[in-house]
Design a protein around this nucleic acid. Structure first.
Lengths: 119, 119
DNA sequence: CGTCTATATTGACAGATATCGATGCGTTGT
DNA sequence: ACAACGCATCGATATCTGTCAATATAGACG
């Protein structure tokens, strides 16, 4: 676990909020949600998310992901960490390899918040 | 108009894309979408969006918005410009006042992209 | 014309972020 | 035990971003 159990990832704090268009976001709500949106607000991380999500079995090994970019391995590792820290990607180590898997509910929550679709 | 008619705002380029979870985003698609998400990835701008959207008549004067924040007027103006430049907020000057209005379709598009909801 | 008022722009600065090379740390295989 | 491999972390650096004070612009109103 990358965080204390007493500390919620941004993802765990979004589902509770009304869509943006319904009522003004409080300062606190906005500050809880922004880091999650910020995590997706990068072309590399958008592609990482979609690569993982659409990969066979719903998961992808870091080795697969590295090859898809013209970036160094530490850079990809950094972006994966950002996505993992906010709860959008789950991480599992199997042998030498590390597999990432999309937390789909999390992405849906953000989408609902923005689009105003209640479910 | 803040941009050439030949140049699309990020908002105008999102609707065409599959949800993230369906197929890998191309490099080009990711680079077109990221600026739009980046525009919402800030607590102040999230609150601005929700304030404008939920305001009476669906629009809000800058003077109203300034008062809702403990930030300088130029800072709010800057954030409004960011949201306007990507096409999320429409801008209309009436007399001395400037009114901003949400481009709701734009927000829905982003939400759909993330949540995977086709409509 | 001059002044007030609402908003935008500019310039400066501190803090955040993306990137890389070097290195560390487990795990596998010899 | 050791070498090779996959991935994470560290430290450095360049660029980006949020913020403010100062200033510009543009409309309204005398």
């Amino acid at each position: 676990m990358s965080k204390s159990v007493l500390e919620l990832t941004p993802v765990q704090t979004v589902a509770c909020c009304s869509p943006l268009t319904q009522e003004p976001l409080t300062l606190e709500a906005a500050e809880r949600i922004a880091p999650l949106v910020k995590a997706i607000a990068d072309p590399v991380r958008l592609r990482l998310l979609s690569l993982v999500a659409s990969h066979e079995g719903g998961e992808a090994c870091v080795c697969d992901l590295n090859d898809a970019f013209d970036l160094s391995q530490p850079t990809i590792s950094h972006h994966l960490k950002v996505l993992h820290d906010v709860g959008l990607l789950d991480r599992e180590k199997r042998g030498v390899w590390v597999y990432y898997r999309l937390n789909a509910a999390a992405l849906v929550d953000v989408g609902s918040l923005l689009g105003g679709v209640t479910r």
